[in-house]
């Protein structure tokens, strides 16, 4: 918390982002999410309102149970709010059908997970192709698109490798290539460095920074402060509310890694 200052809203979009101030990429309005467990109700998100502009790089922080994972699930269109409205790319996801949510995830969102979630016994290029197989219309040459993304994350020569033949950092790069293959607007990463050592973590974060510089919106959920320091903006959750929304004035700049 030391290196941060200046609580945000209303905040200005990141200077290099080609964002339109009219329609933010993500806009939450009084979003609540309530889970019922038996006769107990858990208010995972409590009246949260926040906007994330196109091209931003946001770190979502908080202890476990703070609501950060719930927020991530909503931003990822994996779930819908109990009340309130959540607009992604101008459309309220609480109004969407399951199929429409699936299509939104397919076209607009790229997921990166802590445990990589790669398919066993499947070569890297096929991992990366996966979202394209669910895209409609199906692209002409998904393999070529997948190869291009693998090259982008520096794994062009590992296309035939199975997950077991790759290091943790390489596996996460494959996962990032998979997240990017459909040209999403949002790259949504849930503890992307949680299973990686410090050096590899920084390489992965450097990759995120580079992708963000190229214009993609990055949202990283993490509980590690030094990972959050790569973001432009930091949202801190506690008990289902945003307790801190700060511009990262002392942003870490990536050292090393492919650029």
């Amino acid at each position: 918390m030391t290196a941060l200052a200046l609580t945000a809203p209303p905040r200005t979009p990141a200077k290099n982002a080609a964002a339109s101030a009219k329609t933010p990429l993500i806009r939450a309005e009084n979003v609540s999410k309530i889970y019922t467990m038996g006769d107990q109700t858990v208010r995972a998100l409590d009246n949260v309102s926040v906007t994330i502009e196109d091209g931003d790089f946001v770190a979502i922080m908080g202890a476990s149970g703070s609501g950060k994972s719930t927020m991530m699930n909503l931003i990822g269109a994996l779930d819908v709010p109990t009340s309130g409205a959540l607009y992604i790319d101008g459309r309220d996801i609480s109004e969407m059908t399951a199929d429409e949510l699936a299509e939104l995830r397919n076209r607009r969102i790229g997921f990166v997970f802590q445990q990589f979630n790669l398919l066993a016994r499947t070569p890297a290029v096929r991992q990366v192709m996966l979202p394209l197989l669910y895209a409609r219309p199906r692209p002409q040459d998904p393999e070529a698109m997948a190869m291009e993304r693998l090259r982008q994350v520096g794994l062009g020569d590992r296309a035939d490798h199975h997950p077991r033949q790759l290091s943790g950092g390489q596996q996460q790069r494959v996962a990032i290539a998979r997240a990017l293959v459909n040209n999403p607007k949002i790259l949504l990463a849930d503890e992307p460095t949680g299973a990686l050592d410090t050096k590899t973590s920084e390489e992965i974060m450097a990759l995120f920074c580079r992708l963000n510089d190229q214009g993609i919106t990055v949202v990283v959920v993490t509980h590690e402060t030094d990972i959050a320091e790569f973001a432009r903006r930091r949202l801190t959750f506690r008990d289902g509310r945003i307790v801190d929304d700060a511009i990262n004035t002392l942003r870490r700049t990536p050292q090393g890694g492919p650029s």
Binding site: G76, L78, A98, D99, A102, E103, R105, N106, R107, F111, F113, N117, L119, L130, P131, Y134, A135, R178, N182
Partner: peptide, 16 residues
Amino acid sequence: TREIGLRMAVGGRRRD
């Protein structure tokens, strides 16, 4: 189950 979750996350519909 995890694989199914992943497929859903990357855009697999229920019918898929």
